[in-house]
Simulated scan of single mutants.
Amino acid sequence: MPTHVALLRGINVGGAGKLPMAQLREVLESLGHADVATYIQSGNAVFTPDSSAPTADLARALEDAIEAAAGFRPPAVVLTATELEAVHADNPFPRVTEPKQLHAGFFPAPLGKTYAAQARDAQRLAHEQGSRDEVVVEGPVVYLHTPDGLGRSRLAELLGRIKADGTKPQGTFRNWVTVTKLLAMLDA
């Protein structure tokens, strides 16, 4: 049974970062990982690592291997099953019943007070402009509720511009449908 999930940023989006899921499975297997399975075409995989290496090391090795195999380096976040279960359990928007309106942003490290303050400022600005979107930052996870859809979300646009400590954090967002499906794949 898989014990970890890998989330890649910018895979197969808008004609850039082409990486067939069969190739992603091959890359993960070439690193010695087992129980590899992918979900949809946007860079989601579950696997059991070949060692007890920290997730940051697993992510870096995956980035290196994809760069060697495909010629580009997508940022990767690797989580244990326990970490993904905690993200699901800690959802600050339990009243949201439409899973496509809820998103989780996964980052390789806690985002800190500066990012959280900028996210709150972005939400305030979006609300002033008529948005109903909400954001909560919890360590390395950004929860985003977009009742009018992500594609029309002013808050999501503003969050994409945040540069905490002078650099833009390299994370990746998934809607709640994907989060739930990856959890099910880990439990299978």
Rank of each mutant, 00 (worst) to 15 (best):
Q129H: 10
S131R: 10
Y115W: 01
H103M: 11
R120L: 10
Q118D: 11
D121W: 01
Q129L: 11
R124W: 02
F106L: 15
L102E: 10
K113I: 01
A104T: 09
A126K: 08
P110D: 12
R132K: 13
A119E: 02
P110G: 10
Y115H: 08
F106C: 08
H103W: 15
F106V: 04
G112R: 04
F107R: 11
G112C: 01
Q129D: 07
H127G: 03
L102D: 11
Q123F: 02
P110V: 08
Q123G: 02
R132V: 02
Q118N: 12
A126G: 02
P110I: 05
A126F: 06
A109N: 07
R124P: 00
P110M: 11
Q123H: 04
A119Y: 05
Q123V: 05
F106M: 13
F107S: 09
S131D: 15
G130R: 12
H127E: 14
A117G: 07
A117T: 11
A126L: 06
K113M: 00
A126D: 05
L102G: 06
P108T: 04
K113A: 09
H127A: 12
G105N: 11
E128W: 00
R120I: 05
L111E: 08
F106R: 09
Q129E: 14
F107E: 06
A104N: 10
E128Y: 02
R124E: 13
R124Q: 11
P108V: 04
A126R: 08
T114Q: 14
Y115P: 06
G112F: 03
G130M: 11
Q123M: 13
G130D: 12
S131I: 10
Y115E: 07
S131P: 11
Q118C: 03
L111H: 08
S131G: 07
E128I: 01
H127D: 05
A117W: 01
